[in-house]
Amino acid sequence: MSEPDVPQRFLDLAKQAGGQRALTDTGLRERFGEPGEAEVYAGQVWRARWDQVSVLVLVLAVEDRDVLAAPVTVDPPVEDGHCLVVDGSSNTFGVDATVWAALATSVPVRVLERTIDTWSGDIARWISTTEGRSEPAPAGTRHGHGGGSELDPVASFRAELADDLESLQQAPGLPAETPGMTTQDLASLLGDRLDLALLCNSLGMRQPEVMKLLRGKVPLTLEQVKTVARVTGLAAEKIAQTVRPLPFGLVVAAEHPRWRHVWHERARRQHVSEAEARLSGSYGAFALAARETGGRGRDWDERLRRFLSDEELDPGDA
C-alpha cells in the first residue's frame, strides 16, 4: 500500500474492468474540475497522498483541518467482517470497492489530493454510526465477511493500511495561533547575545532579511535554526519556537486541497519540499496582510493569490 502509485493502479484496474471514462484525467476534470477545486464533504472518495504513501479514502465528516475518513481498496479484492463493500454498479470504478470501516480515523485535510468519486451520503452515515453492528447495509452495498482470525492474510493487509493512515497523519501542518497564545520572538530570546553582523554573516543573508527572522515574521528553516544555535549557544528547540504562529483562518485556507497543486509547483520551482513551499508561502501571505491591514485580513485565499502572483511577477523579491 505504501507504493506512491498504488491507488493509480487501482484506477487503472477499474478502468480496464468497467471501461470507465469518468476515471480518466479528462473525465475527472469534467466531473470535479481541476485537482483540489472541489469542496470537501462527506461521501466523497479522495486520493490522499503524502511523500511515498498514497491511499484512497472515503470522507465521513469534515472539520476545519481534518476529515474523518475510512480507507478504500479496489485491488486486491480483500475484505473482512467489519468492511462495507460497495457494488461496482454503485461506484465509478466499475468493480467492487471495499471500505475498511473499522479503520476510520482522522487525517489532515492537507493530504487530500484529488476527488475520485462521490457516493451516496447513506454510505458515509452508515459507516459513521453503525460500524461493527448488524444493521442492514445501504442500497448498492453489502457487509464484508471473513478475516476473523489474526492468522488470516487479511490481518497483514489491514495492518499495512493502518500504517499508511498513520503516515498520512504525520504530514507536517502549519503552526496555528490559539486563543491566549503568546510567542517570544528570536530577538527577545537572544537578548544581549544578539550580534546582528555575526548572524547576517553566518546565515549568508542581508540585514533586512535577518530582521524578519528576528521578529518572527518569516519561518526559520531547519538549517537556519541549527546555524543560530551554533553561533549563539542557545538550544535549537527554543529557537524553533520563536516563529509567530499563523492566524487560524490562514492555516485553514492554505491547507485546503485547492492549494495543493500550487504548493507542488512552488516546491518544484524552488527545489524544496511541499511542506516548505506551503510554509514560506503562507508566511509571505501573512506578511502581505500585515502590511495592509495589520494582519487581520479576512479573505485569506485572496491574500494567498496576491502574494503568489506578486512572487511570480518578481521572484527576486520572494
Score class of each variant (00 low, 15 high):
H143I: 05
A176D: 00
Q170T: 12
G147F: 12
G132T: 14
A155N: 09
G148F: 14
P136W: 02
P172Y: 03
E150P: 00
A159C: 01
E150A: 13
S167G: 04
F157Y: 14
G140V: 01
A139C: 02
A155I: 01
P179V: 06
G147E: 05
Q169E: 10
P175M: 04
H143E: 05
Q169N: 08
T178E: 15
E166K: 15
H145M: 08
A159L: 15
L168W: 02
L168T: 02
P153H: 06
S134E: 15
V154T: 15
D163H: 12
P153R: 09
Q170S: 13
A139W: 04
A137P: 03
G180Y: 12
R142P: 00
G140P: 04
S156N: 08
V154A: 15
L174Y: 05
R158N: 05
E177H: 04
S167P: 02
A159Y: 07
A171L: 08
P175V: 00
G148I: 11
G146Q: 11
P175I: 01
S156Y: 09
P153F: 10
P175S: 09
P179F: 00
R133H: 07
S134W: 07
L174T: 00
H143L: 09
T141K: 07
G180K: 11
L168N: 00
G147Q: 00
H145L: 13
S156P: 01
A139Q: 13
R133T: 15
G140L: 03
P179L: 08
V154Q: 14
V154C: 10
P136Y: 01
F157D: 06
Q169I: 00
G180F: 10
E177G: 01
L151H: 11
P138M: 03
E166N: 10
E177F: 02
A137W: 02
G147L: 07
